[in-house]
C-alpha cells in the first residue's frame, strides 16, 4: 500500500493571551489510498487542529510546522498559496462538522456544487451540472435535478451533510478529511452517513481521514486508528489491534466508557476517566495523561517510551502485556 498522505512531526502552536498553546505536538501518521484513518480523542485534544493543519485552514494565530507533510508526492509545507488553492477542493477536500452552516445560504445547492467543479476542472456549465446531479444521486438524494435549484435552508441537516459529501467528491479527490461529519446529526442519520461514506470510499477509492470523538463511529468504519490526547498521538494501530488490545491506559479508559449491548447490564455504571484534559499552554513534560491515570508512577514525569509491536504503537511506560 502506498501512502497518499504522510505526516511526520506535525506541530501546531497557537498564540493565545496566556502564551503559546501547543495544540498539536509531534503528530505522525500515514494514510494509504482507499484507507480510513480515524483520529479519536476528547474535546480539545487537537484533532480538529490536525485536520485544519492538513488542509492549511488554521486560524490566523496558529503556526504549523512539520518535519514532513507530503500529500500525493507534493510537499504541503512548501506549497505556495496558489498551489494549495489548486489542491484544495480538487485533490483533497474537507467535510465539516456543521452542515447547517457550511453551505453558503446565498446560493443554490447546484450553484455551489458546480462552482467547485468549474473552478478546478473548467468545462461547460452543463458538464458541471451533470456531475452534480450524478453525485447527488450517489449520495442518496432523490430528485437530484430539483434539489440543485434549492437553497440550503430548504434542506434538512442530513440532506445538507449529503450535499457536503457530494461537494467534497465533485472533483474526484484522492483524500477527504472529515471533521466530525456526523456529530451534528441524529443518531439514525449518523449511521446512514457513515455507511454512505464507506460505500463511496469503496466505489471511488479515496483515502479518508475521519476525525471523531465517538468510538462507536471508529469501530464501524476505521481501518486504522490514532488516539490523541493533549495534542499528541498516544496510541496508533489497526482498528482490530486497538480495540482488541488497547495498550495505552487512556485508550482502555475510552473503550470502557462505551456500553456494549449484551455485556453491559441495566443499571451498571459505565466507565469514566476522572479529571479533565490538562491545559496545553506552555511546555509539557512527561506523559500528559499521568494526572488522570490509574497506573501513574514517578517515571511518568519523564517522556514516555515508545513501543511498537507489529504496526501497533503506543507511548507509555507500560510495555506489551
Amino acid at each position: 500500500m502506498s501512502a497518499i498522505l504522510t505526516v511526520e512531526g506535525l506541530e501546531v502552536d497557537l498564540s493565545v493571551p496566556a502564551g503559546t498553546l501547543h495544540a498539536v505536538r509531534d503528530v505522525s501518521f500515514e494514510v494509504a489510498r482507499g484507507e480510513t484513518l480515524c483520529i479519536v480523542g476528547e474535546s480539545g485534544c487537537g484533532k480538529s487542529m490536525t485536520a485544519l493543519a492538513l488542509m492549511g485552514l488554521l486560524p490566523r494565530n496558529a503556526r504549523r510546522r512539520a518535519r514532513r507533510l507530503v500529500f500525493d508526492g507534493i510537499d504541503l509545507a512548501a506549497a505556495s498559496r496558489t498551489q494549495t488553492n489548486d489542491l484544495r477542493g480538487s485533490r483533497m477536500s474537507m467535510i465539516f462538522q456543521e452542515p447547517m452552516t457550511a453551505l453558503n445560504p446565498a446560493y443554490t445547492i447546484g450553484n455551489q456544487l458546480c462552482g467547485v467543479y468549474r473552478r478546478h476542472k473548467g468545462g461547460s456549465a452543463a458538464a458541471a451540472r451533470e456531475r452534480a446531479a450524478f453525485l447527488l444521486g450517489k449520495v442518496g438524494i432523490a430528485a437530484a435535478g430539483e434539489r440543485l435549484g434549492q437553497y440550503p435552508h430548504q434542506l434538512s441537516g442530513g440532506l445538507r451533510q449529503r450535499v457536503m459529501i457530494a461537494m467534497a467528491l465533485m472533483c474526484d479527490p484522492a483524500l477527504i478529511v472529515a471533521d466530525e461529519p456526523t456529530t451534528a446529526l441524529d443518531v439514525t442519520i449518523q449511521a446512514q452517513i457513515l455507511k454512505l461514506l464507506k460505500d463511496l470510499q469503496d466505489e471511488f477509492g479515496m483515502a479518508l481521514v475521519l476525525i471523531t470523538h465517538d468510538l462507536g463511529v471508529v469501530a464501524r468504519v476505521a481501518d486504522s486508528v490514532a488516539v490523541m490526547y493533549a495534542g499528541a498521538i498516544v496510541e496508533r494501530g489497526t482498528a482490530a489491534q486497538v480495540f482488541a488490545a488497547p495498550r495505552h491506559p487512556y485508550t482502555a479508559g475510552l473503550i470502557d466508557c462505551i456500553p456494549v449491548p449484551g455485556r453491559t447490564k441495566p443499571g451498571e455504571r459505565l466507565g469514566a476517566i476522572p479529571g479533565t484534559v490538562p491545559a496545553l499552554v506552555g511546555n509539557i513534560t512527561g506523559c500528559a495523561f499521568r494526572s488522570r491515570c490509574a497506573h501513574a508512577q514517578a517515571r511518568c514525569e519523564d517522556a514516555p517510551p515508545q513501543h511498537a509491536e507489529g504496526g501497533h504503537e503506543w507511548a507509555c511506560i507500560r510495555g506489551a502485556a
Binding site: M55, L57, T84, N85, D86, L87, R88, G89, S90, S93, M94, F96, Q97, E98, T101, A102, L103, N104, P105, A106, Y107, G115, V116, R119, H120, M164, M167
Partner: peptide, 28 residues
Amino acid sequence: AQDYVAAAKATGASTLRVLLGEVLPNIL
C-alpha cells in the same frame, strides 16, 4: 467566522473570491 467561508477556502477559493463570492452576497 461562518463555516461556509472555511468551506469555500477548503474548495480552493482565493481570498478575493471568498470576499466577493461568499461574504458579500450574505451581507447584501
